[in-house]
Structures are given as structure tokens and as C-alpha cells.
Simulated scan of single mutants.
Amino acid sequence: MGEKVLMKGNEAIGEAAIRANCKAFFGYPITPQTEVAAYMSRKMPKIGRVFLQAESEVAAINMVYGAAGTGVRCMTSSSSPGISLKSEGISYIAGAELPCVIINIVRGGPGLGSIQPAQSDYFQATKGGAHGDFKMPVFAPSSIQEMVDLIQDAFDVADTYRNPCMIMGDGMLGQMMEPVEFKERPKKELPEKTWAANSLGDRKEHNVINSLYLKPEDLEKHNFKLVDKYKEIEKNEVRYELYNCEGEKDLIIVAYGTTSRICKNVIKMAKEEGLNIGLIRPITLWPYPTEAFEKTIDHTKCGYISVEMSCGQMVEDVRLASNGRKPVYFYGRTGGMVPHPEDILNKIKEIVGGVK
């Protein structure tokens, strides 16, 4: 075990990215993630790396596009409305097949909404988030330690598949403090970046970084190539946790991020009242862990309940994964309100009592 240090979530993101060999950070301040940029502004210049506060979110993501094209590890961070502004650039990056990491510390919406925590960017992150046929892996940590670990994973996945990756946490994860350990990890074997626009790798030809295809047959061919890549990601990069899912269950909760931590307490409270409840915690929101439902579908009496800090976004993926075989219920708070354990438990008792 290494030494643990007490860090705010946003600052831990910055430190984890530095240790993952992020060479350039481009961002713009927005609550509740501004400390990511503030931390990088202090640390990156001291170690000979690039920190640049752009004039806007649009500028920041296009700077990421340029830096990623040279093959260096680069990152940006923002919160909800800022991610919306970056969406065009994210699509360009995906179309040009460039690796980068995007942090979204989600706040309440729509519009300016609030600076309180939310999970209402689920659709934006997992259903494209911008124009065109593209996807990006989305990691949803439930603790600051897991967020730190997933930063390294996100950079590795981005480099492996030449694709943008997102870490999506909520405002609570960004602002809270927890002990974290920065673990020494074995270096992963990654593909050589012979595609880059500089001299990385053994290049045989001039590289052009672009996402423009004027001939429709060429763009279709490119899109089918991307689809094949996304299928590989779906095959290799699904991550989830099954918590208390052994044997028969009265009901299984599906929750991610901070909400899943609350739900683990709900499961303990339910046990005291004679209810046997499990939890599926998606760690990748895309690719979605449908196999977790295959493993549990025959062991839940009353089906599943999606618990979210939104008006009901992930519940659609829960319904798709269960595919009509079991009922799917929903409980959510929104606008920056955090679900209370007692309220979740009351909803569970209402479902289980109603079915029984």
C-alpha cells in the first residue's frame, strides 16, 4: 500500500492526469470543476508541460484537437453547459480518430441550471453528444479513488482505440475530499502513433489529420470503419460492479456515481427490514454493461429500479438491457437535489409490497 493523501476530487483529477503523462491541458473555468484547471495551471508549467486557459470552451476543445493530432496526451475539463459548447469539437476529434480525455463534472440543468450535483448529462454523454455517427467511452467513477484510477484507464483506452474518452462525475465528486492513493501501475503496451502529424513513429507517408470526406462513398466507408472500432470497444471495455447480487433478490437497483454510494446504504437499511436488494453499478455508461443484466435477470423477483440524479435518462438503457423480461421502475431527483436513502427505501418498499 502506498501513502494516501487527502485531496479534493477536482485536484485529484489534475494530479492523476499529470501522472498519466498528460502533456497539455486546455480549459475554461466553470463551476463546479474550476479547480481542475486551477490545479493544472499551478503544476503543469513547473514540469515543462502546457497549460492554457482558452478564451472559450469552443477554443479549448479545438486546441485539444490540434494537440491530439501531434500524438501527445492531452485533456480538457468542463461542466455541463461547457461540454455542450465543446460538442462540435468532440465530434471532429472522434471523426479524425484522435485520442484525448474529456472531464465532465456535471451540474444541474437544463440551461444555466445550478452549480449543484446532477447526472442529467447521461443522454449527452452516451447517445452521441454531438452530430454524426460516433461514440466515445464514458467512465462513471463513484469515489475520488476510482476517479483517479479511471483517468489512467481513460488515457490508455483513448490511445488504444484512437478515440476521445470521457470521465463523467457529478459536482459532489468534484468538490468533496477523500483520501486517495496514486498507485504505481505497470505500463500498458499501446499502439505506436504512426498516424500523428509530427515525427512520432516510423512514418512512411505524410499524415493528414482531418474529418472531412467530400465523397459520400468515402465517408460511408470511414463510418463503417468507426462502427467496427466501436464494436471492439463494446467487446473489450465494459466495466461494472455487482453488489450483493448473489442468489435471489427482491429487487435490484441500478445506479452509478455518487448515487450508487447512497444506494449501498439503502441496501443495508433494506436488509434490516427483511428485504434482500442488489445493485448493478455501471462503471462504463458506454459501452453499457448489458451482461450484468443477463447475470441477474433470473434472480430478481420484482425486476429493476433505476435510481438517478435526473428525470430518468439511464432508465431507458435499463429497459433496453432487461428487454421486457422484467419490470423496470424509476426513482430520481433533479435540479441539484440528491436522493435521500429513506425516500429510495420507501419507493422500494412500495414496489416490493405492491408486487407481493
Rank of each mutant, 00 (worst) to 15 (best):
G2D: 15
K4Y: 04
V5I: 09
A16C: 06
A17P: 04
I18D: 03
A20G: 08
C22W: 08
C22R: 09
F26R: 01
G27K: 08
G27Y: 05
I30L: 15
Y39F: 06
P45M: 09
P45K: 07
G48H: 03
L52W: 07
E57W: 04
M63N: 01
M63T: 05
Y65R: 07
A67W: 10
M75L: 12
S78V: 09
I83S: 11
S84M: 14
G89F: 10
S91V: 05
Y92M: 15
Y92N: 15
P99D: 07
R107D: 06
G108W: 14
P117K: 00
D121N: 09
F123E: 07
A125T: 04
A125W: 07
D133K: 14
P137Q: 01
P141I: 08
S142R: 13
S143V: 02
E146C: 00
E146W: 00
V148M: 11
D149G: 12
D149Y: 09
L150M: 15
F155N: 09
F155M: 03
D156H: 11
A158S: 15
Y161F: 13
R162S: 14
N163L: 08
N163V: 13
M168Y: 12
M168F: 14
M172D: 07
L173S: 04
L173M: 06
M176R: 01
V180I: 08
K183C: 12
E184D: 14
P186G: 14
L190V: 03
E192Y: 00
K193H: 06
K193R: 14
T194I: 15
S199N: 15
S199V: 06
G201Y: 02
G201H: 02
K204N: 07
I209K: 05
L212F: 05
P216S: 12
E217K: 08
E217I: 00
D218T: 01
E220H: 11
K221P: 05
N223C: 13
K235T: 04
V238F: 05
E246Y: 02
G247W: 07
I253G: 10
V254F: 03
G257I: 00
S260D: 07
C263H: 06
I267M: 09
A270Y: 13
G274D: 05
I280Q: 08
R281V: 03
R281M: 11
T290C: 10
F293V: 10
H299D: 12
K301S: 00
G303R: 11
E308F: 11
M309Q: 05
G312F: 02
G312M: 08
M314W: 02
M314R: 04
V315E: 11
E316M: 12
R319M: 15
G324E: 06
R325W: 10
P327H: 03
V328K: 10
Y331Q: 05
P341M: 00
D343M: 13
I344G: 05
